[in-house]
Measured scan of single mutants.
Amino acid sequence: EPEARKIVEKLINNGLSPEDVKRWAEKNNNPEVKKAAEEYQKR
């Protein structure tokens, strides 16, 4: 999901860690963003 990846990169560029992004995604019920954050961590 390229859109989710863009969101993850934007949040990380704004100073969030991938863990923060995953928590944000869970709080906002956004499994695509959570998955993208996990993939981002593996890179």
Rank of each mutant, 00 (worst) to 15 (best):
E3F: 07
Y40I: 05
K34I: 12
K34T: 07
K35Q: 09
P18F: 15
K22E: 06
G15I: 04
E9S: 07
W24T: 00
N30I: 11
R23Y: 08
A36Q: 07
E32L: 13
K35N: 07
I7W: 09
K22N: 04
N29R: 06
K34R: 12
Y40W: 14
A37E: 00
A4N: 03
P2H: 15
K42Q: 12
P2M: 15
R43K: 11
D20W: 09
E38G: 04
K10S: 13
P31F: 10
R23K: 11
I7R: 03
D20A: 09
N28G: 03
I12T: 02
N30Q: 14
A36D: 01
Q41A: 11
S17Q: 04
K22I: 15
N30A: 13
E3L: 10
A4K: 01
P18W: 14
N13L: 14
L16K: 04
K22V: 15
E32N: 08
Y40M: 06
V33T: 02
D20K: 03
E19D: 12
V33F: 04
D20G: 06
E1M: 14
E19V: 05
I7F: 10
N28Q: 08
K42A: 13
N29A: 08
I12H: 03
E26K: 04
R5G: 06
A25Y: 01
A4M: 04
E9P: 01
W24E: 00
N28A: 07
A36K: 03
Y40P: 00
N28T: 11
E38N: 05
P2Q: 15
N28F: 09
I12R: 03
K10P: 02
R23H: 08
K6G: 06
R5E: 08
P2K: 15
V8W: 06
N30T: 05
K35E: 07
L11D: 00
E39V: 06
Q41E: 12
V21K: 01
P31M: 12
K34W: 15
K6Y: 11
S17T: 13
P18S: 08
W24R: 00
Q41S: 09
E26C: 09
V21T: 01
A4F: 06
P31D: 10
Q41R: 08
R5N: 09
K34L: 14
E1K: 11
K22P: 00
K27G: 05
K42S: 10
E32Y: 11
S17E: 04
V33H: 02
V33P: 00
E19G: 05
P18D: 03
N30W: 15
K22T: 07
N28K: 04
I7G: 01
E3T: 12
P18I: 15
K34M: 14
V21S: 01
R43V: 10
K35I: 08
E39R: 06
I12K: 02
A25H: 00
V21C: 05
A4C: 05
V8Y: 07
V33W: 03
N14W: 14
Y40A: 03
K42E: 08
R43H: 10
E9Q: 12
E9Y: 09
I7Q: 05
